[in-house]
Design a protein around this nucleic acid. Structure first.
Length: 797
RNA sequence: GCCCGAAUGGCGAAACGGCAGACGCGACGGACUUAAAAUCCGUUUGUGGAAACACAGUGUCGGUUCAAGUCCGACUUCGGGCACCA
């Protein structure tokens, strides 16, 4: 068969018939199957796209044959840095390069034979889309989930610009290589932290890989501990967070983060110069330096003292950058004897190290001793194990009004301002009189202007476009300025799955009733690298919109599957520098997409991935030729009654065995075993030498079974069999269980767990029958004990 | 440093605690052919043996079990995530 020609033929036919369009009237039978949409990066679809989209399409096609109305849309995550950087390098406008890339990818996606309904296509850089991204931002703002605050950003001193986290490579600017500094800037944040607890709890309700759930759990980082209030010697107080309240008696100093607001207030006159200098130094130091665990501890004494609330002890207050402003309360109680960081710091600055925990067996271990044990030198807590002491001490503080049990999360608010051009403009206006004013919804979209100098100059490119920046304040009508930043592209992708069913709705972002009907997404397929970004943001946005009343479900993606990574033939990650990139076109243009789809199904364990080996591709082409030959032979046997009943029953068994497993394997994304079942059936058909009705029926079943994987070839073989209609609309074969029951089955016989032989027994044979058969096989008179699982195993002891 | 995950023939890989290696690649042999390709049919974990068969075998060491690739404990190597998170 000429695969390339055949594919052309069927693709034309499908397109003419709108074969992949979603039937809205059957929405009650819907399954929403979604792949993470792609970034329109280069000229061609890469292997990863094929592996993700091609194989998810196999799944989608299976569901369609199983009678579901599958909603399977495709679109493009079209804003983002690569297009902008490409523009800076080449001068080609991001809009132009992106549109060109999208056109190419659309064509290639169609050539893949994937059953997307293009009527629902979305592109995030389209004003018709980002209008609603801006609407989403305004809703978040209206509900107190978006706020502007000072925050540190990555600053490249040589490019004189802020760069995104993704552009920081090993602490250096990816473009010029200078060490990235930190700088405080006003930034928009989305308050994902408000949903920390629900994002954590919701994980128990969704069918996601455990590993991904664990990554989200760790990222959210719930930590049980205590809050301890330290009063300052000359008025005022601050709280610290600790997970080791049991060591509070050993606290010999406290530390504030350099950014802590109290630092300026409490620093004494004689210490001010040094503390100021230290704050500056901390601000200047790069993120890598600052968070490096190997670097020597630094800090400065403020001159102030605080009172340890548990024992009234007067302790010095220091500033040090090993305390993070953004975690807990930005202040810690230091217990050098039982914390490695505090220990290092205390040693360097000559602060007291007071032991308050000993190991349970009483041995005197080296300090710092960070294990749990028994409290000593701890007043009323002496002799308590550390776990009980923790609660006892916090209860005591609670009584005094100086603290208590509390919980802290590691999750931080989501910074969404980007000092970049190629993104959705932030729909906010800054008025000198009225402050921050949201753009009225009826004025959306805030159009991204085309003529902008996007070369980096140290400011947001939009900020230099006076025509764009100058506007009227919606509140007072006076002259005002737009927010010059654009939204992080993860905002665009945090809600796109809601937009797909509403792609053509120009009245609203999405219709609530309709969206409630089509969502949540039943199966979502994409790379594991998004575990703590996109997948977390999308869950947050869904919950936020639900709380605003726009949605009535809690989780966007009920089931999640990660495809594995296909490596280069050398077993390494594909990259330009390694020169090990495999271009799927090289194979697809020769063998066609069906062969390539089946190859991808068969050559890897889907969620594992692995090195690409081209040998498998001709092997699949050979296999499909083999299928065609046996089918054509079978078609000649149509109408002939089988002569050999026993042989026919064997083939019938093989047919039903394949039918039983193929669909469940595909549904489980176990594509490689599904193909193995097809091959087994094909082998059984070759063993069956006659061309008769039995073989004919086997062929039809085989063609239907493989249709989700090789849709074009299956259509061709279906037509060749004289069947009408599309094979892709046939009910997917299921097994006739009665044909899978055999009168005798081979049962392994073990002696003391060692395999000794096999006996033929009825699947429902009694234990006595099994024992008799086993004893005969082993040639022994009796057994002490028999373990018998009917149809499975006999073990004689 | 902390938290996960993985490790099975020459290779890609299968195996609800129940016949390890399904299915395929490669290799070897046979049929067809003047010959080759293509095709069809076999063999293919290792060791010993002509064979029946025996023994060993799922990264290493121990354990649980009638029975362990699978469960438990310790380790090795590789991969991923987090990382001064108090």
């Amino acid at each position: 068969m000429d695969y390339l020609k055949t594919e052309q033929k069927w693709r034309k036919k499908w397109e003419a018939e709108n074969a992949d369009s979603f039937d809205v009237s059957r929405a009650d039978k819907k399954k929403y199957v979604l792949e993470m949409f792609s970034y329109p990066s280069g000229a061609n679809l890469h292997l990863g796209h094929w592996y993700n989209f091609g194989l998810t399409d196999v799944y989608a096609r299976l569901l369609r044959m199983q009678g579901y109305e599958v909603f399977h849309p495709m679109g493009f995550d079209a804003f983002g840095l690569p297009a902008e950087n490409y523009a800076i390098k080449t001068g080609i406008h991001p809009k132009d390069s992106t549109e060109k890339n999208i056109a190419t990818m659309e064509r290639q996606l169609k050539d893949m034979g994937a059953s997307f309904d293009w009527d629902y296509e979305i592109k995030t850089c389209d004003p018709k889309y980002y209008k609603w991204t801006q609407w989403l931002f305004l809703q978040l703002y209206k509900h107190g989930l978006a706020e502007e605050k000072l925050a540190p950003v990555n600053w490249c001193p040589s490019c004189n610009t802020v760069i995104a986290n993704e552009q920081v490579v090993d602490g250096c600017c990816e473009r010029c290589g200078s060490v990235v500094e930190r700088k405080e800037m006003r930034q928009w944040f989305l308050k994902i932290t408000k949903y920390a607890e629900e994002l954590l709890e919701g994980l128990d309700k969704i069918d996601w890989p455990e590993k991904t759930k664990l990554m989200q759990r760790n990222w959210i980082g719930k930590s049980y501990g205590g809050r301890v209030t330290f009063d300052l010697e000359f008025g005022g107080s601050f709280d610290v967070f600790t997970t080791r309240a049991d060591t509070l008696f050993g606290c010999s100093y406290v530390v504030l983060a350099p950014e802590h607001p109290l630092v300026d207030k409490i620093t004494t006159a004689d210490r001010r110069a040094e503390v100021e200098e230290y704050k500056l130094q901390a601000a200047r130091s790069s993120e890598i330096d600052r968070t490096s665990t190997v670097k020597e501890k630094t800090g400065a004494f403020t001159g102030a003292y605080a009172i340890n609330p548990i024992n009234g002890k007067r302790v010095p207050v220091w500033v040090a950058d090993y305390v993070l402003a953004t975690y807990g309360t930005g202040a810690v109680m230091a217990v050098p004897a039982h914390d490695t960081r505090d220990f290092e710091f205390a040693q360097k600055f000559g602060l007291p190290i007071d032991r308050v925990v000993k190991s349970a067996d009483g041995s005197d271990d080296d300090l710092p001793y960070t294990e749990h044990g028994v409290c000593v030198n701890s007043g009323f807590a002496d002799g308590l194990d550390t776990e009980s002491a923790k609660h006892a001490i916090l209860a005591e503080l609670d009584k005094k009004g100086k603290g208590g049990e509390t919980v802290t999360y590691r999750l931080r608010d989501w910074s969404v301002s980007r000092q970049r051009y190629w993104g959705a403009p932030i729909p906010m206006i800054h008025c000198e009189k009225c402050g921050v004013v949201p753009v009225p919804e009826e004025d959306l979209p805030v159009q991204l202007p085309y003529d902008v100098d996007f070369k980096p100059k140290g400011k947001s490119p939009l900020g230099a476009n006076e025509e764009y920046m100058n506007c009227k304040c919606p509140k007072c009508g006076g002259a005002a300025r737009r927010d010059p930043d654009t939204l992080d592209t993860f905002v665009c992708s945090s809600w796109y799955y809601l937009r797909y069913p509403n792609a053509k709705n120009d009245k609203e972002a999405f219709d609530t009733a309709w969206t409630d009907k089509l969502l949540p997404v039943d199966v979502y397929v994409g790379g594991a690298e998004h575990a703590c970004m996109h997948l977390l943001y999308a869950r947050f946005i869904t919950k936020a919109l639900r709380d605003m009343g726009y949605l009535h479900f809690d989780e966007p993606f009920m089931r999640l599957v990660h495809q594995g990574v296909i490596l280069g033939p050398d077993g390494k990650r594909m990259s330009k520098t390694r020169g090990n990139i495999i271009n799927p076109d090289d194979y697809v243009s020769v063998y066609g997409s069906d062969v390539f789809r089946m190859y991808l199904c068969f050559a890897f364990s889907y969620t594992e991935g692995g090195p690409f080996q081209s040998d498998g591709i001709p092997a699949i082409a050979k296999y499909l030729d083999r299928v065609e030959r046996i089918c054509r032979k079978a078609y000649e046997g149509k109408g002939k009654a089988p002569a050999d009943k026993a042989k026919a029953a064997d083939l019938e068994y093989a047919v039903n065995y394949a039918a039983k497993n193929c669909g469940t394997d595909i549904a489980a994304f176990s594509f490689n075993t599904a193909v193995a079942r097809l091959m087994e059936l094909t082998n059984a058909m070759y063993k069956y030498e006659d061309a008769d009705d039995e073989l004919y029926n086997a062929a039809l079943t085989l063609v239907k079974l493989m249709a989700p994987i090789t849709p074009h070839i299956s259509e061709e073989l279906w037509e060749a069999a004289g069947c009408t209609g599309s094979v892709l609309r046939q009910p997917y074969p299921t097994a006739d269980e009665s044909k899978l029951v055999r009168s005798l089955v081979e049962i392994p016989v073990q002696q003391l767990g060692k395999l000794k032989g096999k006996v033929m027994l009825a699947p429902d044979a009694t234990e006595a029958e099994a024992l008799a058969a086993a004893l005969e096989l082993l040639g022994i008179p009796s057994a002490k004990k028999i373990i018998y699982k009917p149809g499975k195993i006999i073990n004689i002891i």
